[in-house]
């Protein structure tokens, strides 16, 4: 069988049974797998051609981590941290950080004022008896 050949393929010297040195051609190696977000090289994922990927086991093509074989650990970490902070923000401090519209701000101010007034009224109601008890 005549071997396929191309100048870009890797050439390997092989000694044939007759003692002559023949040149055999090997298919080019694909680029290493990379992180989907930052493009860093991923470790632990074989650098093989697509049909070979189809043949090998799933566990050989991944690392045991969420998004293993897709994201690098650093990008995963930043994503998780971002998510955690987002959740914390949305449940705790969001209202303080949210840019409120003019209308909402006005409403909030009025609410605060009303509360203040109510508290003042309550205090005014409560103080006379306490003064009386003191006297």
């Amino acid at each position: 069988m005549v071997q396929k050949r191309s100048r870009s393929w890797r050439r390997v010297k092989v000694r044939t049974p007759s003692g002559a040195v023949a040149i055999r051609y090997r298919k080019p190696k694909p680029n290493p797998p990379r992180c989907a977000k930052c493009g860093a090289e991923l470790h632990g994922i074989p650098r093989v051609r697509p049909p070979e990927l189809h043949r090998i086991a799933y566990s050989e093509k991944t690392v045991n981590r969420p998004y293993g074989g897709n994201l690098c650990p650093n990008c995963l970490e930043t994503a998780i941290k971002e998510k955690v902070r987002l959740v914390v923000l949305s449940e705790g401090m969001r209202t303080d950080l949210r840019r409120r519209s003019r209308k909402a701000r006005k409403k909030a101010r009025r609410k605060r004022q009303r509360k203040k007034e109510e508290a003042a009224e309550k205090e005014a109601e409560e103080t006379p008896p306490s003064n009386a008890s003191k006297a």
Binding site: P66, E82, K83, V84, V87, S90, L97, R99
Partner: peptide
């Protein structure tokens, strides 16, 4: 048990804003 982070991985313009 595991935080879903799909939304964070999306490009910025596709993400829902905090507002």
């Amino acid at each position: 048990a595991r935080l879903p982070i799909e939304d964070v991985l999306k490009p910025a313009h596709e993400r829902p804003s905090l507002e």
